[in-house]
Design a protein around this nucleic acid. Structure first.
Lengths: 143, 143
DNA sequence: TCAACACTTGAACAACTCTGCAACTGTTGT
DNA sequence: ACAACAGTTGCAGAGTTGTTCAAGTGTTGA
């Protein structure tokens, strides 16, 4: 799961076809290169993708209140045990949660405080934004 | 694209089957409820999903250096114009970027500083993490 | 040693995503 | 008005993802 953070579609990227716009009316800024390391970019994308699912985000929100075992999470979210297990597998593969065995149970907990904060900042941001004003029709470039 | 932040799989969630673990050996904590507003959860997930793709994240990284028109972005990333346009459409639908027409060109720019910071914090975090120590084999619960 | 519990994992499938092509909409310069 | 440029959009196909079922792995208590 979560392949290389580059989604479906056709695989092999094509050749740079045209010469790109270079008309006088639009003096193009210097061609800004990637800037960010490809590996970090990919790693960040994978993390975002992992939390880019309500179900998984819900689990993180739940764990933010303290660790919990799979069964507890399943009960709290009214979901199948295996479903939760799979979701946790994804989160774990991105190191967003860690697990620890305790007898028959396996407790999961949020791992990285850095990431956790990021997630909740976004959550807070999402709560603030009323859904955006005109946005729903065609936003941007105000008249 | 980007449906309701709840991915593929079968659509209708099933009935809460069993009574959940309630053995004596594991005194379950009080059943912690959702806590976070469902709408915010969904909104946050959509945002994360939008940036959860290297290609789109790359565009954001590029725009962090200043606005750019579609052609410039396409040139910088060696991609088809329509491909970039589609990616920008996704980013725009989550209000991560805004556009502004300038003659024949349409310039795109990052919209929300709040979000922008979040993205780059994650990017920074991803750069720090060397990829995780043992992680690659089965991490967690140290021996 | 065994049954029961708590999970994990592999496979299958339906649903969703991304990309590129072709066709179409806007702007500008002539 | 027209050609050319800059972007957008509809569509199809290949690929990916999430959920569930069934079967497998660990642990514990009897």
């Amino acid at each position: 799961m979560l392949k290389t953070a580059t989604k479906p579609g056709r695989v092999p990227p094509p050749q740079p076809p045209g010469p790109a716009c270079t008309t006088a009316d639009h003096a193009h800024r210097p061609i800004r290169k990637p800037v960010v390391n490809e590996v970090s970019l990919d790693r960040a994308a994978r993390i975002f993708r992992a939390v880019g699912d309500v179900s998984r985000l819900r689990i993180l929100a739940l764990l933010s209140q303290g660790e919990a075992c799979v069964t507890e999470i399943a009960a709290a979210t009214q979901e199948e045990l295996s479903t939760i297990s799979q979701r946790l597998r994804i989160l774990r593969s991105e190191h967003l949660v860690v697990r620890r065995r305790q007898g028959k149970h396996i407790n999961y907990a949020l791992s990285d405080q850095h990431i956790v904060e990021m997630v909740f900042n976004a959550l807070a941001h999402a709560s603030e934004t009323p859904a955006s004003p005109t946005a729903l029709l065609d936003p941007d470039e105000e008249p």
